[in-house]
Simulated assay, not measured.
Amino acid sequence: MKKNPAAAKLHLRVTLAPGVAFGPGKADLLAGIRDTGSIAAAGRAMRMSYKRAWQLVEELNASFREPLVEASKGGPGGGGARLTRTGEDVLARYLRMHEAATAAVARDMAALRRHVG
């Protein structure tokens, strides 16, 4: 079996307070909202139901002092969503932490991959 170096990756999940965690799924959802301007489109890109995407956005907004996502109602021109300044900051900090953690464990990850058949 051929080794796939891309298959090994670090998943960072940060527990910020009891019951408040932030990890790759929520980061991907925020990045999708930032990139598409839509909660529905971000959820679709992740193969997530519209309802689940909205639940996560509501959970994120309730977990932080300020909302991370601001949504506008649909209508003839359609609705939309955007990250707030706090949302942009939370996402950027998480991505920096993930990048730093990945770099910190790169040698050990490479060594572990060598043990995989």
Rank of each mutant, 00 (worst) to 15 (best):
D89T: 11
T84D: 00
R52P: 11
T15S: 14
V14M: 11
A71Y: 13
R93I: 15
F64Q: 00
F22R: 00
A40H: 09
A92K: 02
L95S: 12
M1E: 08
V90Q: 01
E70M: 15
N4C: 06
T86W: 05
D35H: 06
Y94K: 08
H115S: 07
G77F: 09
H98D: 12
G19T: 02
V14L: 15
A45F: 00
D108W: 11
G87Y: 05
H98L: 14
D89K: 14
L12P: 14
S49E: 04
A111N: 08
A31H: 02
R34Y: 06
A21Q: 09
A71D: 14
L10A: 12
R96W: 14
R113E: 12
A27I: 12
R107N: 12
R44C: 10
L95M: 13
L91E: 01
M46V: 02
S72M: 11
H11T: 13
G37E: 14
A6N: 09
R65F: 05
M109F: 07
A45H: 01
M97S: 12
R113P: 06
G23L: 02
S38F: 05
V105E: 07
T15N: 13
S38A: 12
A17F: 04
L91V: 02
N61A: 14
A106V: 02
D35G: 13
R44E: 15
K3R: 08
N4D: 10
G37S: 10
R93F: 08
L56R: 00
R13Y: 05
A81R: 06
L16M: 12
Y94C: 04
S49W: 02
A6E: 10
A111M: 05
W54V: 07
A111Q: 12
G117A: 09
R113D: 04
I33F: 01
A92G: 05
A31Q: 04
A6T: 10
E58F: 08
E59Y: 15
L56A: 01
Y94G: 03
V57I: 10
T102N: 11
A40Q: 10
A106P: 01
E99G: 12
G43L: 02
S63R: 03
Y50S: 13
K73G: 11
P76F: 09
D108L: 07
G25R: 01
A41F: 03
